[in-house]
């Protein structure tokens, strides 16, 4: 009991928020891939939105304010709307009658469990020279300066990539592909 009280008094508010957001992220993430109540892709998409929003909370805790905003605007906004539009266009009624195969569950759990073991073992064995009290602030001004000085070439290349993606999508959505 006293140990628990010590633990609680030592935990600061950001640390507590970390545990809250981490639990939310992982919980919603689990509901994306396997929801016991619904096999509908729309529910998966909705839980993916919630996962991304709680992840933006983790970004704020890491002082990456700009990325937290971008995460919500681009992922929870644009990308998820795209997903929902596509789900709406496809008729996925047949999906709800299909069950997940038992073999797939066993194989998935085995392989993923092995990889998690490797991850955690390597994490345990690594000695990080990390700062205990980091000072990096990911605010917009600093990131913008970096983006337009050191990373200006990749920035321009990414714009070409977006153009290519746009042309590709228009070509793919044509009725008769040649």
């Amino acid at each position: 009991m006293e140990h628990l009280q010590n633990l609680i008094s030592e935990t600061t508010l950001p640390d507590m928020m970390f545990y809250v957001f981490a639990t939310l992220t992982l919980g919603f993430g689990a509901l994306v891939i396997a929801n016991p109540f619904s096999r509908n892709p729309v529910t998966s998409a909705m839980f993916l939105v919630l996962t991304i929003i709680s992840m933006a909370g983790l970004f704020v805790l890491l002082h990456a304010f700009f990325l937290a905003a971008v995460q919500i605007i681009v992922y929870a906004g644009a990308v998820m709307v795209l997903f929902l539009f596509v789900i709406m266009m496809l008729d996925l009624k047949a999906e709800q009658h299909r069950k997940i195969k038992k073999v797939a569950i066993v194989a998935g759990l085995l392989s993923v469990g092995a990889i998690v073991c490797i991850f955690l073992k390597s994490l345990h064995a690594t000695n990080f020279n990390a700062h205990d009290s980091p000072t990096t602030e990911g605010d917009t001004a600093l990131l913008g300066k970096l983006l337009f000085s050191q990373y200006v070439l990749p920035f321009e290349v990414v714009s070409v990539l977006l153009l290519v993606a746009m042309v590709g999508v228009i070509l793919l959505s044509k009725k008769d592909l040649k």
Partner: peptide, 13 residues
Amino acid sequence: LGMLGVIMRRNLL
């Protein structure tokens, strides 16, 4: 979790 989803689920979306 993401990898488990890729292995387990059969719906492309």
